[in-house]
Design a protein around this nucleic acid. Structure first.
Length: 200
DNA sequence: TCTTAGATGCGCT
DNA sequence: GCGCATCTAAGAA
């Protein structure tokens, strides 16, 4: 039997959570069946980070800014923060940091483990490599939308099960993708050599 | 294989 | 109105 290590993980700072989520499993229960995937790419968004949705830049510094959209990242750690962007895509994050402090880890890519046929049907593509190798792709494959914003990730129908932390040499640390503010910070992490990583 | 541009809709100012 | 934590098809090679 495996202990649930989510609570202790959530006491760690965001970047440490982002590293330790590599190798963790996401379990999603849909009417069609159960899906499972292994996290292989993450990004951290921090409480003093201009790229973080809960942070606003201000006179050479930053302050926190809570809105209806980003409320989940100010809530207790361990909840899902799901938001819609680019007119097409949902992004799936794990809220981090103590309640009242904005922070999150964006889940950028999964390695599909279970329910491949369902993912293929949901994505409308047969190539396994294109099912979950990007943040918008994995939310489509796993049926993650705004209904799950604020959902407690220790509970069905969307669960996060941490694994054994990966060795440092297995983890590549680099810059985040698709942002303009604070674009130079090396707060993206992925599993070295994994075929489902969205981009090198 | 790589690069580019258009689609898309909502939250925020 | 503007700006997005993106994806895909189309075109060049």
């Amino acid at each position: 039997m495996t202990m649930n290590r989510l609570p202790e993980l959530l006491r760690l700072p965001t970047l440490e959570v982002a590293r330790r989520l590599l190798g963790a499993e996401i379990i999603r229960d849909l009417p069609e069946g159960r899906l499972c995937g292994r996290i292989v790419e993450t990004e951290g968004y921090l409480p003093n980070d201009p790229a973080c949705h809960g942070v606003r830049e201000l006179l050479g510094g930053t302050c926190h800014r809570r809105t209806r959209r980003n409320a989940a990242m100010f809530g207790p750690p361990g909840r899902a923060y799901v938001y819609f962007t680019y007119g097409n895509h949902y992004m799936f994050n794990l809220a981090t940091e103590p309640e009242g402090v904005p922070g999150a880890v964006l889940i950028r890519a999964l390695e599909p483990l279970e329910g491949l046929e369902i993912m293929i049907a949901r994505r409308g593509l047969a190539d396994p490599r294109l099912l979950t190798n990007g943040p918008g792709r994995l939310t489509q494959a796993f049926g993650i939308g705004k209904e799950l914003d604020g959902h407690d990730l220790s509970l069905p129908p969307l669960q996060l099960v941490p694994g054994i932390p990966m060795a440092d040499e297995e983890i590549v640390e680099t810059t985040r993708i698709g942002i303009t503010r604070a674009a130079d910070r090396p707060w993206r992490f992925y599993v070295r050599g994994n075929p489902w990583v969205s981009r090198k």
